[in-house]
């Protein structure tokens, strides 16, 4: 089975800034990691390879330093890595990113499955996966929590949706975005790290892709960031201390009064009838 894993390098801290002029993220000077949700996709890919044979190729779009993320994926057990990098891609929104990635996939050749994390922890849109599938015209299954089977040219997956799990069969090739419960990621081994160091990555620039330059980067992006601001994180709410018996009684009194004042207990706030279907039932 030929598996491609779309990954993203993301900042490791909350100290990320955005450039107020271009409205894009400043990634320099911040430690980077593989997007934590992509680790589940990498793990699933490696397990599928272990069961069915084949090859796993991790690919990413990013600055040249994103090679570190690909090396980490290889150290975990992927066989190869493709870095899609070019100044022409900078400032891409999800539309332009997915377009460039789709052209990179076209260049990579035949595949059965594309896996990705449900979203990345920096942009947090979850859009690139479904967008990529649309470009490639292959079925997309998002929020995949487990795979029941992956053979005979199709996969059966369980999608974690609001009401429960949707069981779906899809013909391969197809694209899956996965959530945490799909697999517990392994750590890279020493042997894996050595293999990663020895493995040369393929690097695709804009000129290597059969892509319309007008659809790349900031100018190819339909959405434009017009303003960035830093929200107030604290709410400055009341704080009561419950450090002894009397304090605890008092705290519970005050909390109950607070909830009542906000009408969160007295009425049936749950208003289950208002929510259609059985979705709200526990």
């Amino acid at each position: 089975m030929e598996i491609l894993v779309a990954i993203k390098q993301v900042p490791d801290t909350d100290k990320v800034r955005m450039d107020p002029v271009t409205g894009t993220m400043v990634r320099e000077g911040v430690d980077t990691i593989v997007n934590p949700l992509d680790l589940y996709a990498i793990e699933l890919a490696i397990r599928l390879k272990e069961q069915h044979g084949g090859k796993v190729t991790a690919f990413t779009m990013g600055p040249p330093a994103a090679d570190k993320a690909l090396k980490e994926a290889i150290a975990m057990g992927c066989d190869a890595g493709v870095l899609v990098t070019d100044r022409a891609f900078s400032g891409s929104d999800t539309w332009a990113t997915s377009y460039a990635l789709s052209r990179a996939v076209a260049k990579m050749g035949r595949y059965d499955l594309i896996l990705a994390g449900e979203r990345a922890t920096d942009g947090d849109t979850g859009q690139v996966g479904p967008c990529l599938a649309a470009w490639l015209d292959i079925p997309v299954l998002t929020y995949v929590g487990s795979l029941e089977s992956a053979d005979g040219g199709s996969i059966v997956a369980r999608r974690l949706v609001e009401e429960g799990y949707q069981r779906v069969r899809a013909k391969m090739p197809c694209l899956l975005t996965v959530v945490k419960e799909v697999a517990n990621p392994r750590l890279p081994t020493l042997r894996g790290k050595k293999f990663a160091r020895q493995t040369a990555l393929a690097v695709y620039g804009a000129g290597d892709l059969d892509a319309d330059p007008a659809c790349l980067g900031l100018k190819g992006s339909p959405t434009k960031v017009s303003k960035i601001f830093y929200p107030k994180v604290t709410r400055g709410g009341a704080m009561v201390k419950a450090l002894d018996e009397a304090g605890t009684e008092n705290a519970v009194d005050e909390l109950v009064a607070f909830l009542e004042a906000r009408d969160l207990i007295a009425r049936d706030v749950i208003a289950r009838e208002e929510i259609a279907g059985e979705g709200a039932q526990r």
């Binding site: 900042p11 909350d14 990320v16 955005m18 409205g23 993220m25 922890t121 920096d122 942009g123 947090d124 959405t223 434009k224 960031v225 017009s226 303003k227 960035i228 601001f229 830093y230 929200p231 994180v233």
Partner: peptide
């Protein structure tokens, strides 16, 4: 974006 640390108007 970025875990709610930044708000962007688009």
């Amino acid at each position: 974006a970025i875990g709610g640390n930044i708000m962007a108007t688009i």
